[in-house]
Design a protein around this nucleic acid. Structure first.
Lengths: 120, 120
DNA sequence: GCTAGTAGTAACTATCTCGTAACTATCGGG
DNA sequence: CCCGATAGTTACGAGATAGTTACTACTAGC
């Protein structure tokens, strides 16, 4: 696979790649809005149903990247909390700003009609 | 598949979804930088190799959405050109601005290290 | 007639991704 | 002792996605 993303001037590519896998943006978003959530809270806070399998994978990935912090408090009633690190917060701010941009720019009505995707 | 994207305050979701399929952002980017390109030029201008099959599908999809225009000039030597419509240009501008944002925001070094993705 | 270039399309295949279901482990309650 | 909640992990399988190859159709050039 060509990891030669874009010759130059397009660091944006890695951001898009990062957000491409389903749920990724939502997790950043929800954590950004709520601060700190436990696994099950996160799961319930997601729009639609995310499977534990995927939520777990995403969180671990982001943890590896240093984007979220994981705090395992004691053992009695299992209690693990996730929150955005400073770098994660930066990503969240980026999402907020893209959101603003999308509002300001007279964004394609075309995209507004996007319900189903990529009819191949 | 829950198309219940995000409850509210997140039109950003459809943008991310639009750009999620591989090559999509690149096509907008390349067309935005070059103005108008023929099928084969577009193909060669892409970083890495895109298959004709996928390039064709993406272009058709964007054409359906009114984001790119297709001009089939005569028949002699087959010659078809693609270019961004006004709405497509808006998308390209959005990409440019996200790019800027990504530069301004002290964006996660984490993402800089993103070569491989989502180790599930 | 054969080959090359342009613009695709169609069929087949490989891979990736995600959801479902089952299972682990620990604690508290009935 | 069994059940439920929390926080996962693992195995399996269906569906989406993208690449490869072959094919069409037209013209120009050798």
């Amino acid at each position: 696979m060509p990891e030669s993303a874009v010759p130059k001037g397009c660091p944006l590519d890695r951001i898009l790649k990062f957000f491409a896998p389903q749920w990724t943006a939502h997790i950043v978003w929800v954590l950004g809005q709520n601060g700190s959530l436990r696994f099950s809270e996160l799961s319930r806070a997601m729009p639609g149903d995310i499977s534990a399998r995927v939520l777990s994978a995403r969180l671990k990935h982001m943890e590896d990247l240093g984007l979220v912090g994981r705090v395992d408090a004691g053992v009695y009633p299992l209690n693990v909390s996730y929150s955005l690190s400073d770098e994660g917060e930066a990503l969240h701010r980026l999402l907020l700003r893209i959101d603003q941009l999308a509002d300001e720019t007279p964004l394609p009505a075309a995209l507004a009609n996007l319900r189903d995707q990529a009819p191949e």
